[in-house]
Amino acid sequence: MPRKNRRNPEFFEKPEAPPARADAPLWALAPGYDVRHVGGEKEYRCPGCDHVVRPGVWHLVVVPQGEPDERRHWHTECWRREIRRLGGRA
């Protein structure tokens, strides 16, 4: 006898996609830079450590103000280190 209590696929097979971008944590904000928290499908090269930012890993996108072409994807930890180098004088 065929089963009747099939799950409604409409209901169960479409988990809600997480938001692709969000505001960066407060510590990551630096004057003169736009910082966003993102998770993406692409692979990037982190300027802080020269290693890969793996697809799907949440990380930070940093854009110096007035310089849209200098937008870079940073590991969160690498940007934390970069912020320390800014030393509050930016």
Binding site: G32, Y33, P64, G66, E67, R72, R85, G87, A90
Partner: peptide
């Protein structure tokens, strides 16, 4: 000069 990798905001440059 500061050893950073992130370019300066345009007004600074």
């Amino acid at each position: 000069e500061a050893g950073r990798r992130s370019t300066d905001p345009q007004p600074v440059a």
